[in-house]
Amino acid sequence: MEDILFFVANLGLFFFAYVILTVGLNIQFGYAGLLNFAYITFWAIGAYVTGVLILGPAPGHGITYILGFNLPFLVALIAGGVAAGALAALMGALILRRLRSDFVAIGLFALSFALYDIVGNYTPLFNGWDGILGVLPPLNIFQLDANAFTIYYLVPVGLATLILYWAANLLQNSPYGRALRAVRDDIDVAASFGKNTVWLRWSALVIGCIYAGIAGGLMIGFLSALSPASWASSETFIIWAALIVGGAGNNRGMLLGTFLFVIVALEATRFIPMPANVQNLIPALRLIVIGAVLIVVLLFRPQGLLPERRRIYALPGQS
């Protein structure tokens, strides 16, 4: 019975963190139409920066990383979000001024690949391919054991998810969100009535990546370790699939998509018992199923399970 409780709590942590991730991507793609296939990179930067700020100084003997300030978790988490946002601000300034939709995607993808290799090979940064490890459970004021901590940690992570989800809804239902949708639908038209399209897309990129960084910082709190292997491009693909199947532009659709993919397909299947000789079967099948579902949805319901809602305004006048 207790095992099930811990299992569910663990799934809950993944769900909340992925909701923050998918909301951030929805701000970029669903609101502003930005194709960011490098999204997971910003999650990783948030996780790394939060991690190395919580950790003490690097011990040496083959383990090296920057910072190591023993900072409190909340400070480190905010710094992680800021770091991801700052990186996005820099990349956006390089890319968005000159490039449009598909070329933005290629540009971000290229930069993130470069970053992946730098993090992997330049060990003084985040300990290279081995990654950082030993990040202690944060906010653990009651000295809980691992299982109890999982349940306890649901509270701060859930709270952060609520706040960020609520903020994303406010952004969407505002003049800012409306201007982003105009840029998404036709960037030249938006410019033709005075929208600063470079600034609008840049700010959406930065805000979305801050979400990714915070999700990463929250996750390093219960993953305790991170290496480049855990942010390969297939992770980005799963977040994209969740968003598109759920319904880009609709935050509830995004919730549904995240639940279906991340909880049902990705995390719950980890625990299906398999004979030792076919233990790679489940991860492989999982990606095949996700890909197949994505194709079916794109073919038969391209707007997603819960499409963006039509906004109706009370308008004086007559036909």
Partner: peptide, 27 residues
């Protein structure tokens, strides 16, 4: 060239709203 996934009303709303209000802070 219309903003196709926005309604007629929204097309006009987004065109006429002041750009000064189009910031995350105002949102």
């Amino acid at each position: 060239r219309e903003l196709r996934r926005m309604t007629v009303t929204e097309n006009l709303l987004v065109a006429s709203q002041s750009w000064r209000l189009e910031s995350p802070w105002v949102a």
